[in-house]
Amino acid sequence: MNGPGARSGGRRGDRRDKDQDSGFCFDLSCLPNRKEDIPPKNSNQLSPSSEPVEDIEKASVNAIFRMALAIQAEGKLDEACKLYEQIVVLDRDHLDSWYNLGHIREEQQNSKEAVRCLKEALRINPDDKESHLLMAYAMESLEDIQGAVTHYKEATRIDPTCTNAHYNLANAYHDMNMLDESASEYRKVLEIEPENVDCYFNLGVVLQDAGQLGEALASYEAASRLNPALEDATTAANGIKAFMAESASEPSVP
């Protein structure tokens, strides 16, 4: 007997995806550029000539960082990178400059350079969630799925409510045919976002692949209830129902 009807659209991406085929999140807009708390100038500040050397360097770093952020906001990414690179020469432990460098390089599709910069950010703070997420995107761009999984897992360790990391981790596990792990991550997303239509649909795909047709049907039907216009979910649910009805009508083999 043939199995239930083939899925018409495969796994669905959601608002986090640019690459519908891979299912991974590449939308860097969900990771805003980091901005450190820089105090505003005031008339009581000392002139540079009267400041200790270390204070002069700090003031210089702060000024360059403000300039880099402004230039980056204007879309002048190469110019912003030059300024961030100046900062990390002055202060190798300037986390936000390393992060913003990595962010720009990944946006420019220079993932190898993004990884180099983000390694520095994570050297400074191994528990920086955004750096782990961006590192995962860069590694997936380099087709290092296992590396991406490692950093998505770190992001969920740091912030168990990070649905972005759970969702993309679920997609990665599915691509690796780790179906139980994939289903578990989708369910974690749904605990936080109980009306995530695409997550219900993707969970249905994983459960169907695992042969858990009853649970897959429930997931597809949940997606259909939340979005009645989602034809993929309706088609998948009807295919499972037809298969289950056909199976029930067949005589048992003695």
Score class of each variant (00 low, 15 high):
M1D: 14
N2D: 15
G3F: 00
G9V: 10
G10A: 04
R12Q: 11
G13F: 04
D17S: 15
Q20D: 12
S22I: 08
C25D: 06
F26T: 03
L28Y: 06
C30L: 13
L31E: 04
L31K: 07
P32G: 06
R34M: 09
P40A: 11
N42F: 01
Q45E: 09
E51Y: 04
E51H: 02
P52G: 06
D55R: 12
E57P: 00
E57Q: 09
A59Q: 04
A59N: 13
F65P: 05
A70Y: 12
K76H: 12
D78Q: 14
E79L: 14
L83V: 05
Y84S: 08
E85Y: 10
Q86I: 04
Q86H: 08
I87A: 07
I87N: 09
V88S: 07
L90T: 08
L90C: 07
D91H: 07
R92Q: 13
S97P: 02
L101Q: 05
G102L: 10
E106D: 07
E106W: 09
E107R: 07
Q108V: 04
Q109F: 10
S111M: 09
S111N: 10
K112H: 05
K112Y: 02
E113M: 15
E113Y: 08
A114G: 08
V115M: 11
R116P: 00
R116G: 00
L118Y: 13
E120M: 11
A121N: 10
A121I: 10
R123Q: 12
I124W: 02
D127Y: 10
D128K: 11
H132G: 12
A138K: 02
M139S: 09
E140N: 13
L142M: 15
L142G: 06
E143P: 00
D144M: 10
I145A: 11
Q146M: 13
Q146C: 08
G147Q: 05
A148N: 04
V149A: 09
T150R: 06
T150D: 10
R157F: 08
R157E: 12
I158W: 05
I158Y: 06
D159V: 00
T161N: 15
A165S: 06
Y167E: 07
Y167H: 11
L169Q: 02
L169S: 05
A170D: 01
D175P: 01
M176D: 09
D180F: 05
E181C: 03
S182I: 04
E185M: 09
Y186I: 12
V189F: 11
L190H: 00
I192N: 09
P194N: 14
N196Q: 13
V197T: 15
D198I: 01
Y200D: 11
F201R: 03
N202M: 03
N202V: 05
V206C: 06
V206K: 03
D209K: 14
G211Q: 13
G211V: 08
G211L: 11
Q212F: 07
L213T: 07
G214K: 10
L217F: 01
A218Y: 01
Y220G: 02
E221R: 02
A223S: 13
R225T: 13
N227F: 01
A233F: 04
A237H: 08
A237P: 12
N238W: 00
G239I: 01
I240M: 05
K241I: 01
A242R: 00
A242K: 01
E250S: 12
P251S: 12
S252K: 11
V253E: 14
